[in-house]
């Protein structure tokens, strides 16, 4: 009985704006929480898309990219999602295997992602490089390469994310593999004494770093832009590593089960246009997948420009993740 009472209470408390747009078709877009949060781009994007589509765009959020896939897997064919925004390269193969996605049908020529884009299920909507972020007031000479960081026993202390629970954590695991190949496990053992801890997610790690628990944190080359723009602080920098940086690309796709394939397709088209792309840099702190006519956004001008983009294909990740993770576990859990 009180379940129903609860439902009533909840819908009273929550569904404030839902009733307003009943007549228009509803486009349900799944995304991760900070994308649709107070400081995320979702509100701007919603306004701009609704201005042209004569529809009602509704966001449904999961905690992070991993939760998005988990939720889709749980919901299966009964999912309400028309479009999903916020997967990443390392989850792409798993997401594809759910067999819930339809071909995107969008022309991806001319996207500004540093790799050739041939995927027909997902389109990129923004991207960035992984990087170690440090406080230049405290760390005067950051390592110039991943090897220097790993192999210097007196090097800076770092806080990382657990690759089993976090996207940047997995990203760094792959970065180590790209640089060290089969020697990655030995490199992990070398780095381990200077790893403060592996946190559950990016948030905990970044928080630990800002609270002074570590000299460097695994994050993105674009992270310092946030501190410059929002806090007017320029002491946080990303360390440029000579081997190149691991690439992080965020993806969008539409579902096969959607009741409104045209609307979903038109949203995917919208993703690669100026109104969507211009909302990304200063809210999601990532590079837009399509540069505006003026070139790279001004706020990223001072950011580290990696010499080389490192990346595994989604299929390689799917195939090797278990083995990579087990190797990492063995090397670091002693």
């Amino acid at each position: 009985m009180f379940k129903r009472l609860g439902l009533t209470l909840l819908s009273l408390g929550l569904a404030t704006g839902a009733a307003l747009a009943q007549s228009k078709p509803v486009l349900t877009v799944y995304t991760y929480s900070s994308f649709s949060g107070k400081y995320g781009p979702a509100k701007t994007i919603e306004e701009r898309f609704e201005a042209t589509c004569n529809c009602d765009l509704q966001w449904v959020t999961a905690e992070d990219a991993g939760s998005l896939v988990g939720r889709l897997r749980l919901e299966g064919e009964s999912t309400k999602a028309d479009v999903v925004v916020g997967l990443d390269m390392n989850l792409a193969a798993e997401a594809r295997n759910l067999k819930l996605f339809a071909p995107h049908g969008v022309d991806t020529k001319g996207v500004a992602v540093p790799v050739e884009w041939e995927d027909d299920t997902f389109i990129p909507f923004d991207w960035g490089y992984l990087a170690f972020v440090y406080d230049s007031n405290k760390l005067k000479t950051p390592p110039a390469s991943l090897k220097e960081l790993v192999e210097n026993p007196n090097g800076p202390k770092v806080v990382l994310q657990d690759p089993r629970t976090s996207a940047p954590g997995l990203g760094f695991l792959l970065w180590m593999r790209k640089v060290y190949g089969d020697g990655a496990d030995a490199a992990w053992a070398q780095l381990k004494p200077r790893v403060v801890t592996f946190t559950k997610g990016w948030s905990e790690a970044y928080g630990l770093f800002l609270k002074g628990e570590a000299d460097m944190v695994m994050s993105y080359t674009t992270s310092p832009a946030y501190h410059v723009v929002a806090e007017k602080k320029d002491n946080y920098r990303a360390a440029a590593f000579s081997e190149g940086h691991y690439l992080h690309v965020e993806l969008a796709g539409r579902t096969r089960t959607t009741k409104q394939p045209e609307l979903a397709k038109s949203f995917l088209d919208f993703v690669l246009t100026e109104p969507f792309q211009s909302a990304i840099p200063e809210t999601n702190w990532m590079y837009p997948a399509k540069n505006p006519a003026s070139g790279t956004p001004a706020i990223f001008k001072d950011m580290v420009q990696p010499s080389k983009a490192l990346i595994f294909t989604p299929e390689e990740v799917l195939e090797n993740r278990r083995a990579f993770t087990d190797g990492w576990l063995n090397a670091t859990s002693r």
Binding site: Y32, S33, S34, Y39, V60, A62, E63
Partner: peptide
Amino acid sequence: GTELQTLPYLLYERLG
């Protein structure tokens, strides 16, 4: 999510 957002959820959103 937007439909079921609790305070701890909001906390993580801001951290993110």
